[in-house]
Design a protein around this nucleic acid. Sequence first.
DNA 1: TTGCTCCTCACGTCACGTGAGGTGGC
DNA 2: TTGCTCCTCACGTCACGTGAGGTGGC
Lengths: 287, 287
Amino acid sequence: VFSIGDFSKITGLTVKTLRFYQEQGLLQPSWVDAQTGYRYFAAEKIEEALVIKRLRELDLPLAQIAEILRTCDDEADLLGYLQRHRTEIEAKLAQFRQIRSSLDQIITHQLEVQRAMQQSTFQVEEKHLPAMLIAAIRIKGKYSESGPAFARIGRKYGRHICGPCFLLHYDHEYREDDADFEACMPIRKGASAEEISVRELPGGACVSLRHRGPWDELGRSYAVILSYIAQRRYAAQTPTREVYLKGPGMIFRGNPKKYLTEIQIVFDAAATVAAADLRGERSAGGA
Amino acid sequence: VFSIGDFSKITGLTVKTLRFYQEQGLLQPSWVDAQTGYRYFAAEKIEEALVIKRLRELDLPLAQIAEILRTCDDEADLLGYLQRHRTEIEAKLAQFRQIRSSLDQIITHQLEVQRAMQQSTFQVEEKHLPAMLIAAIRIKGKYSESGPAFARIGRKYGRHICGPCFLLHYDHEYREDDADFEACMPIRKGASAEEISVRELPGGACVSLRHRGPWDELGRSYAVILSYIAQRRYAAQTPTREVYLKGPGMIFRGNPKKYLTEIQIVFDAAATVAAADLRGERSAGGA
DNA sequence: TTGCTCCTCACGTCACGTGAGGTGGC
DNA sequence: TTGCTCCTCACGTCACGTGAGGTGGC
């Protein structure tokens, strides 16, 4: 017969836990000294305690363990309990996997944002855009509809997203309520579904400029980049791209003064625009 | 400005939760009516509430969220918190995967036990044993050492175990304190490690008998099977196998009267034993 | 007056752990 | 006497949810 301390060492359950299990009616001492209140456990109690311990190690709630102790005395009786419990564990796993995937998305996105921030010059540049696979939602309406569209794409293609989101502008002039644009995210793989079109967006030569500050000040940067293009007589193509290198975060809206947006205008490298076109006439292109 | 009920509908946080967050200093109403105690929230509070909600959806504890709200206002400041939190989520995932794997082991083992129980005849049978891959620990000592040995194999090869555990008896007579035996578990794959030998155990023709009841009564069944072999002059080979179809479970010790053990004695199907051998002399085998 | 919203306060959940203050046996 | 083990009782953890009992405004 063992004192509670010895029984604790034998079973690996703490003294506090043993007292708690008694209170909960899970494990009664063999004998309690009426004088001192000391608990004593006989050797047969060891197996009982270990059964509880093993079930707790499987994360079964004490209430279920109590029921099991009342109704089962063979592994076969446990089967139903364990199978049901397994589905619950599986559900928790799914939850945590979901959380981890959200965390990963936020973390990798943030790391990309920081990389983009570091290597930012704020001058017009010419560079080559590679082709990329994108998931996109075409919208005719207000620009404010792009936020939810990005969210829908993010939810659908989650971990396959591999770069910052951007808008394609199809309009040849500024439009407020019936703009024609497309919310896009580069993805590694995926198939079209419902409203979302998955396709390859061709690359090409482009003129780009990074804009730091809120979106409603993008006009100033458009003025700079468009005059650059006009001076060189480049044949600009639609759609124009606005890449949101840093915008509102997935948690914080962030400070719009810190937003970073890259305007990209693809042009036909084999063509220039005649002087006449600069006065508003249209060109068919040409060497 | 919104009442707590409206604010609850807007943010998706319950009224109780909003009151609780106020008490915890996470989210103060814009204004509290001194007369009625009614809480009122301005529109700017919506974004604040949603930040808390998004962080809670990542399962961050409220204390951390409070710290984040005090010290961060941009996604970049979150990075460290989220990375640390990710490792904690990963740890929880590992825990639950471990639990699931234990559950799976117990469940599949139990299902096998039940299958074995159903198709049990308790007569001597002849059958062919297939070769199998086993993980084994050879022991010279007491039989009571086999329990921990099985546990060690189980811990090491976990999910690759594909059948009931068994003992190989190498002794030609009964031994108490210095028995020579090997604790084995059939596995799908694995490599030898330390004390555990992984190898293919050859099959062959065998005589088998299922024994129901405690192990210390196995002698009775040995008597039956050995006299069967003697009658037919089969050339029995060592080691003899004891397959524990149902023994003490992983949770409950179970009732020894319900234990089910199959004795398997492999014999050389191309040989018989001369009558002289039955009186104790050794045979070299022969057609 | 009825229904609705809002309030506070106390308690429950889950499986223990912490700590104060004290007792009994060697 | 000292040290050790044991006891009880109350409270804390975590993020809320439940429910009782009551008030204020339309």
